[in-house]
Design a protein around this nucleic acid. Structure first.
Ligand SMILES: NC(=O)c1ccc[n+]([C@@H]2O[C@H](COP(=O)([O-])OP(=O)(O)OC[C@H]3O[C@@H](n4cnc5c(N)ncnc54)[C@H](O)[C@@H]3O)[C@@H](O)[C@H]2O)c1
Ligand SMILES: NC(=O)c1ccc[n+]([C@@H]2O[C@H](COP(=O)([O-])OP(=O)(O)OC[C@H]3O[C@@H](n4cnc5c(N)ncnc54)[C@H](O)[C@@H]3O)[C@@H](O)[C@H]2O)c1
Lengths: 228, 228
DNA sequence: AGGAGTTTGTGAACGCGTTAACAAAATCGA
DNA sequence: TCGATTTTGTTAACGCGTTCACAAACTCCT
């Protein structure tokens, strides 16, 4: 009698897609867009899986959580499937984000053109440094951290990006939450505590490189065997 | 009679630490450094786990793959454990990386001070744009992509970062591999194919935000219930 | 010396994610 | 119409990662 986080509810509504699947849906979307650009209008799971770099069985299982959008013996209609995935992950609308901390990384993020094609719009830039406040970065005026609450509610922003030093991360997170933000992407190498109902994802670029370094070290130890 | 990728080999040598554990070891390292700075010389698994934001049992299991470095009834010696983890993940030496593509993101990465304290050294910057080649960014001269092979072998670089547009990613990966690079961190939204023996990790910031957007969409649908 | 208290290291259970395998459902040609 | 062929959707098996729970090992106090 344990309560399961079942992908499908009893009423048949597809809900609660596994995290691992959610993380891959944007990849499929990108692959479908690439197929459209190449003029392909129908594809099999093998074809799409190849383009996305995943196992075909995994792709089909992932898609099965959304519904039954393929045709047996035929495959998937590229445009139709693209729309269904986009709808599922909320890409039929744009999501506004605020970047807090427009230093090296925050500036690079604010200049990135690739977000807009994925339904992400950088709607506001915020910093605490008086020398940065009021300046224009990538066509946007940098606002004060103190105006965060007003900006978030005015522009209906629900996602915040922390690109400040680690020491400021918790304070910034608290302010974002107080302003009504319910999703945070944290680039600072620090743990942030948030109340229930707020999602936090962490991107740690140092760790990515450290993981590669670990494998490099292991390779060095077995190189004689591998290169023999 | 299947061959297992066992954490421990028959001779007792600790090898083949699980991927999930490897990804957390740098977090523990950071937490241990923080404890040292606070003057703490001994800590329990509960204490360290709290600082790292993980379950204590998970922490102990992770550490058990490295060896038995704690004392029952006492806990861990912070400095000793820090050294053991550092040694395990290759942080007793510096790892040199080359950044290919010094645009917005590549420049931000090259300016980042946080890498050096984690054993990562940005040893070279490379670009294909003649207007960038020869300029100085974060105190380093930008070299031509054509000199990649010489730079990599001269400076003994084993890790490459791709920060070029997605369209150039595969070509850059090929060049990195040809130059002798065996680990790649790819920021471009593109799949890159590499030979066996070369590790590739992908960081996709759009997808991180898209995952948050998905959860935002779900929250919107259940808000009435949650906020009731 | 011995018992009470503390904390590690690990065995075992559990759950999630991945993958293989196949029945169901479609197309196509004869 | 029917059999051969293709490809999906799904079930079942498997492996990895997480977590609980506890014996083993240590400290400390009397
Ligand atoms: N630059 C990189 O490539 C890189 C790589 C990995 C991780 N990071 C992490 O990303 C974060 C940002 O890095 P960066 O290189 O852009 O740093 P940076 O120093 O260039 O920029 C930080 C910005 O945050 C602002 N800031 C400081 N405190 C603030 C506060 N309380 N509220 C609002 N703004 C505040 C500063 O004024 C500055 O503009 C850091 O945590 C860093 O560790 C950066
Ligand atoms: N800027 C961001 O915040 C951000 C966010 C997410 C993803 N990305 C991805 O990171 C990558 C870099 O982004 P960016 O904003 O820095 O782009 P950018 O256009 O600012 O810089 C790209 C750089 O790569 C160089 N380049 C192009 N072709 C090259 C080649 N064949 N060899 C070597 N160098 C080459 C260009 O000269 C330029 O300097 C892109 O793939 C982008 O999609 C960037």
């Amino acid at each position: 009698m344990t309560i399961l986080r079942s992908p499908r509810l009893d009423d048949g509504t597809a809900r609660g897609i596994p995290d691992a699947t959610v993380a891959r849906l944007p990849i499929y979307l990108r692959a479908l867009n690439a197929l459209t650009e190449r003029g392909v209008s129908t594809c099999s799971s093998n074809e799409l899986a190849e383009n996305a770099g995943v196992n075909p069985a995994k792709l089909r299982k992932d898609l099965s959580y959304l519904g039954s959008y393929g045709t047996r013996g035929v495959g998937y209609d590229v445009e139709y499937l693209r729309y269904q995935i986009a709808r599922e992950i909320g890409q039929t609308q744009d999501w506004d984000v605020v970047i807090v901390g427009v230093g090296n990384l925050g500036s690079a993020l604010s200049a990135y053109q690739g977000f807009s094609t994925r339904g992400i719009r950088v709607a506001a830039l915020v910093d605490a440094d008086p020398r940065r406040i009021g300046t224009t970065i990538s066509g946007q005026t940098v606002s004060s951290l103190d105006d965060l609450g007003a900006i978030v509610s005015e522009r209906n922003i629900s996602i915040g990006i922390i690109a400040t030093p680690g020491t400021a991360a918790q304070e910034v997170a608290d302010r974002l939450v107080a302003a009504g933000i319910t999703s945070i992407l944290n680039f600072a190498p620090a743990l942030v505590q948030v109340p229930d109902g707020v999602d936090v994802r962490k991107v740690d670029l140092s760790i990515e490189l450290q993981i590669l370094a670990y494998h490099e070290q292991r390779k060095a130890g077995t190189d004689k065997v591998v290169n023999a």
